[in-house]
Design a binder for these strands. Structure first.
Lengths: 115, 115
DNA sequence: TGATTACTTAACTAATTGGTTGTATAGTAG
DNA sequence: CTACTATACAACCAATTAGTTAAGTAATCA
């Protein structure tokens, strides 16, 4: 990520955009355990099949998931498990921030006690 | 990222959302080389100071950058360089996809030649 | 065949967002 | 003080988007 032209930046942004929605993250997280149908995913995500289907087709378009049909059901699965490395990295970043916040909070309380 | 409640998912989504915009990625990329003023960043990103200022305050609010003023200028810098690990990981993912696409493209051409 | 199930998609609404423009603030120079 | 510079911010607009609703498609079963 050094000499990035506008086109490359847009690709990276689109990648992040796919992950910038709680419901989609929930779907990807559910798919950690293997492929699932739309209705199973909808139940797990506490959403409607229509909404989940829309999110899944976006994730399919951007290459995060793949689709397989069997009978009247559509099974979705993760294309490349490496994306979880990304999610875990982000979770680590957020955890780091939260602990930094906690530390700052403690420091503040300490200072308040001194005052 | 296993047992994630709605709140955690929203935090992660917000994190990704901050990175889901080409101009903001451009700013973060420019800040790899150290702190810069708003107008310097605006020039580098081929945007207006007002627009860049808005993006920077979002990045500051979500904790990606920090602000320092000197004279009439505002200098921004990266809070935690570890975010670049994330960006590089994403670039790697995208590169992987592009090469997969290229391979599929070649396979298609090969098949077409055979037909 | 008709009925049911599972999913997709189009149309719509409400909310969000990137960018622009104009105004306000703060520091600096004369 | 005024004038100028750098930045921030509010108001606004156009475009995008998450979610709902209803209609449409495809496979299964009586």
């Amino acid at each position: 990520m050094k000499g990035l032209d506008r086109n490359a930046l847009e690709q990276v942004a689109e990648y992040f955009q796919s992950l910038a929605e709680p419901t989609r993250l929930c779907l990807l997280n559910a798919l950690r355990n293997g492929e699932m149908t739309v209705s199973e995913l909808a139940e797990g995500a506490e959403s409607t099949p229509a909404n989940v289907s829309k999110h899944l087709s976006l994730l399919a378009k951007t290459g995060f998931v793949e689709r397989r049909t069997q009978g009247t059901s559509a099974y979705y699965r993760i294309t490349d498990p490496d994306i979880y490395a990304l999610c875990d990295l982000v979770c680590g970043q957020i955890a780091k921030r939260l602990s930094a916040q906690a530390e700052a909070h403690n420091a503040f309380k300490k200072a308040a006690r001194r005052a």
